[in-house]
Simulated assay, not measured.
Amino acid sequence: MAATFNGRLFLKNTAYLTSTGFKVILAYSRTTNFFYAYYVLRTLTAMICEGSINCLALAYVADNVLERQRTSAFGILSGIATAAFVCGTLAARFLSTALTFQVAALVSMLAAVYMRIFLEESLPNGENLTQPILKSGQDDHCQDGDLSRKAPVLKKIPSIQDIIGLLKSRVTFSQAAVVAFFNSLAEGGMQASIMYYLKARFHFSKNHYADLMLLLGIAGMASQLVFMPLLAPHVAEEKLLAIGLLGGIADALLYSVAWSNWVPYATTIFAVFIVCVPPCLRSIASKQVGPTEQGKAQGCISGIISFANIISPLIFSPLTALFLSEDAPFHFPGFSILCIGFVTMIAFFQSVLMRGPPPVSSHKISCNSLVA
Rank of each mutant, 00 (worst) to 15 (best):
S52C: 15
F101R: 05
F10N: 06
P291C: 10
A219E: 00
A372G: 08
D211W: 14
A186D: 04
H363P: 05
S148F: 15
V65N: 02
L198I: 07
T292R: 15
T344E: 10
Y255V: 07
S122T: 07
L154A: 10
A73D: 00
T320A: 14
A37F: 07
A3C: 09
M221V: 06
V65K: 10
V178C: 04
L231I: 05
T268V: 11
N368D: 14
G51C: 12
G220F: 12
A297I: 04
E127L: 14
L225V: 02
S122C: 07
S361W: 08
S205G: 10
P124H: 11
V275G: 05
P264Y: 12
N309L: 10
G75Y: 05
G51I: 10
A92R: 06
I346N: 01
L90Q: 08
V113G: 15
P264R: 14
V153F: 12
T14G: 11
L370A: 01
A328C: 02
I310E: 02
C55S: 12
Y196I: 06
P279R: 02
M195P: 06
F10W: 13
S19K: 10
V171E: 11
S136W: 07
F118I: 15
E121C: 11
N261L: 13
F101W: 06
S286P: 08
R201L: 09
P233L: 13
F94E: 05
T20H: 10
L253I: 08
N13D: 03
D140Q: 15
I160W: 07
F323Y: 14
Y196R: 15
S52K: 06
S78C: 09
K199G: 11
L99A: 07
S184Q: 08
L95M: 15
A200D: 10
L230M: 11
A2K: 13
L245Q: 00
A3Y: 12
L106N: 04
M213D: 06
C87F: 11
F94K: 06
Y114W: 11
V226M: 10
P318C: 02
A180H: 02
A222D: 00
S260K: 15
D146Q: 07
G217W: 05
V179W: 01
A236E: 14
T292D: 09
C367N: 12
D327V: 13
S78V: 07
H363R: 11
I301P: 01
Q161D: 13
Y265T: 04
F181Y: 03
G51N: 03
A258C: 11
L319Q: 00
K168H: 15
T71L: 06
